[in-house]
């Protein structure tokens, strides 16, 4: 009996182990090994840290690296600011059918592929696009307006892509907040702002943190949106990885970039947890 259940346990564990092993651990080990070698001549490789040295000394690489990190954090912050009221409305103010419909509306854009959605933005925002024509028709612009290929456009795309992943955890945590706790906050003399600061946000903290982590990771690892909507100055780090692997066939440097991105995201997420972990402790005493 005991043996049987143990066999069943390992059988059930198998898919997870295979998935982790084959798709995550083994490729990453291989990547790490590739990033740690240097091509000496045709088919001859040496162990060295030359790739990392190159990545950390070349200003273009470093600047793109830093820019990607900062822009991702910014995109996460903007997503949070927009998603919070949306999630609050869905969780606490909408009732019954409306609640379901609103939630579905957040989900529907994800029925089409990211590529198509990004093209949608391009149709709207390009020089001959709908917004440009509308502005000309309304007399607000006297010539076609190009709104694509700027950082702002890219930010719009990033926020749009990530919205759902922020709204879902926020709605879940906000729904678990008892209405009477909010009412008690008002009843005891709180204003809207203080109830938000002292009661709603502390309660929603787990949702905020998990939403931010997911959105940050998605933004950092996004390839399509920065490439299609961003301008020539909006180089994203994932684009550089792609370039090294596909355009230059320089797998060694590409692998090194990949690892730098992994370290960066780990550090920022860890920092985020540390930061909120401390404030969580403070609010909970």
């Amino acid at each position: 009996m005991r043996n049987q259940s143990r066999v069943a346990f390992y059988l059930l564990l198998m898919p997870l182990v295979l998935w982790l092993g084959l798709l995550i651990i083994i490729p990453h080990i291989d990547m790490l090994l590739i990033s740690l070698r240097e091509r000496v001549s045709f088919g001859v490789y040496d162990r060295s840290l030359a790739q990392y040295e190159k990545a950390l000394t070349e200003p273009l690489y470093l600047r793109t690296f830093a820019r990607t990190a900062v822009m991702s954090v910014l995109a996460t912050a903007i997503t949070l600011l927009i998603a919070f009221p949306v999630a609050y409305y869905i969780a606490k103010m909408a009732r019954g059918r409306l609640q379901q419909v609103l939630f579905l509306l957040c989900l529907i854009p994800f029925y089409v592929s990211e590529l198509v959605r990004t093209f949608g933005w391009m149709i709207l925002l390009r020089e001959t696009g709908i917004v440009s024509n509308l502005l000309q028709w309304a007399g607000l612009a006297d010539q076609p307006v190009e709104m694509l290929y700027t950082d702002a456009t890219m930010m719009v795309g990033l926020v749009y892509t990530s919205m759902l992943f922020m709204v879902v955890p926020l709605v879940t945590t906000l729904e678990s907040l008892d209405d009477s706790v909010i009412e008690a906050g008002y009843d005891l003399g709180g204003s809207g702002l203080s109830v938000l600061r002292e009661i709603i946000i502390p309660h929603a903290m787990p949702g905020i943190v998990s939403g931010c982590i997911v959105v940050f990771m998605l933004s950092l690892g996004n390839y399509l949106t920065p490439t299609m909507l961003g301008g020539k100055d909006s180089l994203w780090f994932t684009e550089m990885i792609y370039n090294q692997f596909i355009v230059r066939s320089n797998w060694e440097l590409g692998a090194a970039f990949g690892f730098m991105l992994l370290v960066l995201s780990s550090v920022i997420v860890w920092g985020m947890l540390r930061l909120t972990g401390r404030t969580l402790k403070e609010t909970m005493g």
């Binding site: 009477s180 009412e183 008690a184 002292e198 009661i199 502390p202 309660h203 609010t283 005493g285």
Partner: peptide, 10 residues
Amino acid sequence: FQHLALFPMM
């Protein structure tokens, strides 16, 4: 309140 509604975060 019926379920007291103490603030659990404080």
